[in-house]
């Protein structure tokens, strides 16, 4: 666990700063306090995992950082400038791949590149092919989206998100819908790509092991209202194997902390 002062000592420049963000949703069943005064700093090139039970506001925070959702109070700074809307600098990857089914694999990766000015058609194609190769889909560029497996779809989504070369990658439980074996492959891939391409990644998950496997830091959320409870520094060498014993120690510690923060909640419900 780190403290604020420890964080300040770090020398890498700050990429993202979440400052006192609160958010309440109005639904048919009343108000949901999704985020309550959440602050978080992410350094350039850092891999941060947000962990918590469903409904703790971690996905909402990701949407706010992406600029897809507004804040009630507080703000998000990207490179020191307030985030006012979505932008190519901060790319989002969703749990549902959110691919465009009327385009083929290459078409999906080209989508964002076509919106980028100052690129010739040939350059766009080269960039798209480069990223498709990076995710291991170079033999499927003309495949139909409907023909792909869940893991392949997420690879396309990853290539599509990487192609416009964003500095920040925001991933909202991107592997939650996949089987364990495919997931493990993707853990390896995402660590490799992160190291090679020097991205800053914020990764939302409810899987503690996954968070420990991927993150430099694991940030623990608790629900109702969504708050940051603890932050853990994961000092394990990379690439990490999700089945290693050292990793299991960390995830046991974090899981205990998670349960501790959930306890008052459950007793409250029981009353």
């Amino acid at each position: 666990m780190t403290t604020v002062s420890e964080e300040l000592r770090n020398v890498a420049p700050e990429k993202l700063a979440v400052e006192g963000v609160s958010k309440t949703f109005r639904t048919q069943r009343g108000h949901v306090h999704a985020l309550d005064n959440v602050s978080l700093n992410v350094r350039e090139g850092e891999f941060v995992c947000l962990v918590g039970p469903s409904g703790c506001g971690k996905s909402t925070l990701l949407s706010i950082i992406a600029g897809l959702e507004s804040t009630d109070s507080g703000q998000v700074l990207a490179d020191g400038k307030p985030v006012t809307g979505p932008g190519r600098e901060r790319m989002v990857m969703f749990q549902e791949s959110a691919l465009f089914p009327w385009l083929d694999v290459l078409g999906n990766v080209l989508f964002g590149l076509k919106l980028k000015p100052n690129l010739t058609g040939k350059e766009r194609r080269e960039v798209a092919l480069f990223y498709l190769k990076l995710v291991g889909l170079e033999n499927f560029i003309h495949a139909n989206i409907h023909e792909l497996s869940g893991g392949m779809k997420q690879r396309v989504a990853l290539a599509r998100a990487l192609a416009p070369n964003p500095r920040v990658l925001l991933m909202d439980e991107p592997f939650a819908a996949l089987d364990a074996l495919t997931r493990e492959q993707l853990y390896g891939d995402i660590q490799r790509i992160w190291a090679e391409r020097k991205k800053t990644i914020i990764f939302v998950t409810h899987n503690v092991r996954e968070a420990v496997c991927l993150g430099d830091r694991v940030v623990l959320f608790s629900p109702h209202p969504g708050r940051i409870q603890e932050k853990f520094e994961i000092k394990l060498p990379r690439p990490r194997d999700i089945n290693s014993v050292d990793l299991a120690k960390y995830s046991t510690e974090i899981t205990r902390a998670l349960k501790r923060h959930l306890k008052p909640e459950t007793t409250e419900v029981a009353e």
């Binding site: 932008g87 790319m91 465009f100």
Partner: peptide, 10 residues
């Protein structure tokens, strides 16, 4: 989600 993906893609 597809619309949101398009928005973040610029």
């Amino acid at each position: 989600e597809e619309e949101e993906a398009a928005l973040t893609l610029g």
